[in-house]
Design a protein around this nucleic acid. Structure first.
Length: 279
DNA sequence: AGCTCTTCCTGAAAGC
DNA sequence: TGCTTTCAGGAAGAGC
């Protein structure tokens, strides 16, 4: 399931291999995979890929033609991937969009998404700005620490849902929320308004450390994440709690990693991640 | 405004 | 063994 680090890895590969290439043809296999802008599809033919951005967990391609730039937004959702042509998948019937390029290092980019929880959108500049404002909160890697502290202090409710709330903090999903909270020694159900400022700073530092480390490992390959060129992410090997229910706590505290299934699965150590009023 | 609940969808895993 | 059922998961929309 692609979250921020995986989307970043995808964006970097697309930049390295397709920046400056010309989009020749864009084939949409099923109309309902495009959330918005399908009627503008033909505009993109002949446009040049001038930039690739990541917003939260989404990858945005900027395509320029005759002094105008329009955008292809790829929401990866749970199972969505952008793949180069040479990367084989077990289920080729779920390739929904094919974009062919000339002048780059790859002839084709494919949008593959078996479960179709994500969509694509074709947007002009104003549409992209609206999309961005509506859906994405601050970026965890670029938000200044003091702004993050103020943002968290203004919220109430449980900590893990807040970390995963894309309109507040964009890009953290279930895997990284669990890993960040374990390393910051914070219980997933901690009440946000009971966190001290210093604790939020620790959370901020941990969040950035985990996400940066995951990016440098190529992301986490859990349930079939592959980069566009087919390489797997190695950060899964460094997971400490995600998917480790029943195993001993890596801090050697003697307790067993538990799983709370009330909402999205929370994996945590009941001793190291206390829900008491520690700060 | 801001919660929670339901829906979307398919492959994998569990259940029988 | 092989069929059926359940479940996972992100985000939108409904309902309160």
């Amino acid at each position: 399931m692609p979250e921020l680090p995986e989307a970043e890895v995808v964006a970097r590969q697309l930049r390295a291999r397709l920046l400056g290439a010309q989009l020749n043809d864009c084939l949409v296999g099923r109309a309902d995979i495009v959330r918005e802008g399908l009627h503008t599809l033909l505009w993109y033919h002949g446009a040049v890929l001038e930039g690739v951005e990541r917003y939260g967990k989404s990858v945005v391609l900027g395509l320029k033609k005759e002094d105008e730039t329009r955008y292809v937004v790829a929401e990866l959702g749970m199972t969505g991937l952008l793949l180069f042509r040479t990367t084989q998948t077990k289920y080729p019937q779920h390739v929904h969009v094919r974009m062919s390029f000339t002048g780059g290092r790859e002839p084709e980019l494919r949008y593959w998404n078996p479960r179709r929880f994500g969509r694509m959108s074709l947007l002009d500049r104003a549409g992209l700005d609206r999309y961005r404002a509506r859906r994405f909160g601050v970026d965890p890697l670029t938000v200044p620490c003091d702004e993050f502290v103020r943002l968290v202090q203004a919220k109430r409710g449980r900590l893990k849902p807040l970390l995963m709330h894309q309109q507040v903090i964009a890009g953290i999903g279930n895997i990284y929320a669990n890993e960040i909270l374990f390393r910051a020694r914070l219980h997933p159900n901690r009440e946000v308004n009971r966190l001290r400022g210093a604790t939020i700073v620790t959370l901020y530092d941990t969040m950035q450390t985990v996400l940066r480390e995951a990016i440098s490992c190529g992301g986490s390959s859990v349930k079939d994440f592959y980069a566009p060129d087919g390489t797997e992410g190695r950060y899964r090997l460094r997971h400490l709690v995600y998917g480790k229910e029943g195993q001993p706590c890596p801090n050697r505290c003697g307790r067993i990693i538990r799983r709370l299934q009330s909402e999205r699965s929370s994996f945590f150590c009941p001793a190291c991640q206390s829900n008491r009023l520690l700060g």
